[in-house]
Nucleic acid binder design. Sequence first.
DNA 1: TCCGCCGATTTGATCGATCAAATCTTTGCT
DNA 2: AGCAAAGATTTGATCGATCAAATCGGCGGA
Lengths: 351, 351
Amino acid sequence: MSRMPTVDDVAQAAGVSRQTVSNVLNSPEIVREATRQRVLEAISRLGYRPHASARRLRTRKSATIGVRIDPWRDGISGAVLDRFLHKLTEHADARGLRVMVFSAADPDDELARIRRLREGSDVDAFVLTATTHGDERIRALTEQGVPFVAFGRPWDPETSAVRHRWVDVDGRAGVAGAVRHLREQGARRVGWIGWPHGSGTGDERRAGWEAECGVDADARAALARHVEDGVTEGSRAAAELLALPEPPDAIVCASDSLALGAMIAARTAGRPALPVVGFDDTPVAAAVGLSSIEQPLDDVVAAALDLLFGPAGDDVRPNPSSDEEPTDRLLAPRLVERRPGHLALDAIPGT
Amino acid sequence: MSRMPTVDDVAQAAGVSRQTVSNVLNSPEIVREATRQRVLEAISRLGYRPHASARRLRTRKSATIGVRIDPWRDGISGAVLDRFLHKLTEHADARGLRVMVFSAADPDDELARIRRLREGSDVDAFVLTATTHGDERIRALTEQGVPFVAFGRPWDPETSAVRHRWVDVDGRAGVAGAVRHLREQGARRVGWIGWPHGSGTGDERRAGWEAECGVDADARAALARHVEDGVTEGSRAAAELLALPEPPDAIVCASDSLALGAMIAARTAGRPALPVVGFDDTPVAAAVGLSSIEQPLDDVVAAALDLLFGPAGDDVRPNPSSDEEPTDRLLAPRLVERRPGHLALDAIPGT
DNA sequence: TCCGCCGATTTGATCGATCAAATCTTTGCT
DNA sequence: AGCAAAGATTTGATCGATCAAATCGGCGGA
């Protein structure tokens, strides 16, 4: 037979009807065991696979989730979203879901694309990444009844008021834990290099440092720097801190880019053993032997899918209304410790 | 109206038949201008969008391409495939194509998943990335008649014998160009840090250095190191080279990871101005101010889609048979020059 | 004036699956 | 044994679009 087998072919081969074949696949429990076996045998003998488009046409579901992938990835940290995407496909595969990616020029364009993808039953639900202050997408999708989950908490009261599903990583707890750990290891003055105020993520992370650094407000002001993300910026800020009369004896940073810069600055300043902690545990951190706070992406993805589809299965739940059980999850990150000096520069002949 | 409008709704609204509406969308040239306008007006008034699954069921096409995304590679260089993926979605969107991603444990698993995706008309064609020596996937997909294009040339005669579509970047020409450029700038002994022999990509890149470095075989042996990919490895190799009686006055590397290591080693060895060139122009290179050879991913993606779908349109061409016009494209990369010392460590107070 | 041709449009059938309701089987209880 | 309820299976309709073939309408030529 040249064409792919269909339910009818299987039905004929097994001596049953279309619908029974369909039932074996979709509601096995209502089929008698004997017939079930017979049908399964026929299915595997003919190599039958259900035609996804036909099924979707009928059921109006696609078992597909959509994710936007971002164009701007100058920073090292853009890598987090890539790892997120990869984890997402893994977990989705395990649930029998598919992942479709798309790109968009701006939030409006993203909304337009989302609408289009959903209209054709191409995609059932979406994962929004990189939520911002006053994120327009949350409200728009909620109003349109498009099922989605956000990776990133709502950053302002307005968005919080819109009940929706989200998952995020507790940056504050992560940084606090790292600072506490450094102090247990003997550090007395832990410095902070973060981003300019105003980004939700950045402010959260800084709050973790503030809570645990154990010094008064004046000392905190001296020990903190806020710069744009980047290796150069991190390097410069760290050099400033290390040049203080009372320099820090450890530095925690809001990103691996900043931390890499800090690490290089420490080396240059003759303090190669200064503990430096970054955030996101990107490949670069692993490559240069930098401690870093790792986002538990596996858990994040699992939680996101749970919220969208329930603990198991591939039926999208509708967006939550305003009076139900919790629809969000805040997960704690984990400190990955590495030895400074892992670069082994000291072991190099001639140094 | 609660449900989405269909062709029939539009037809009724415009006072024509289903098929005419369909024609306006798919073969506008056979519809009279006046009716065409009337139908278009009705379409936009009702906000009609064709139902993708229904169309696919009928036409047996999905206008969707599949790409495997790799489980995390620890190197910095994994970023290339991510950028590739992003470019792919951009170009695909522009052509009205969709991109579906999936993950797989190994090549066999990948083939199984590809088969499944194609059977349901989920995906029309695939892009294979990271081709290897003796890549099983090429032959398997060709035999099964699954349309695909490889990003990566065939690395052995056996695979070359299987006529298939591929696009690749001419690493040899890229490295050769960089070496030539360094020599024009006054370098006399250009070193090489690459990967162990055996990887197609790595050997090609090294060949570019050999061709243009302008020294005899003995000197070449002294000036080259072959190590696994990684910052530490690059750093160690570079330190060795710089400790030679006649050290190199510039170093070209097979990857940005190696180059970053080399750059740090140069700094440590007191030669911060040593020109170092990496490969792939990853975000890290940009962040630390490292020159790097950039793969023209835009062109790669455009070429790949051209090979699959023709210069325009979204009809997949069948895999090439053995006697047709060229089915591959080799593209030249470009050197992105940056200033060493961009890290501005020298400008730091206290140094 | 009538016929035939050609381009524009319409009608009937189909893609492959699931839903809803009808029909046939078995089971359980008196 | 008889009969209803529960269980298993089958039949007819449908999802929304396109394909293939039939129909309609206008125009030129005999």
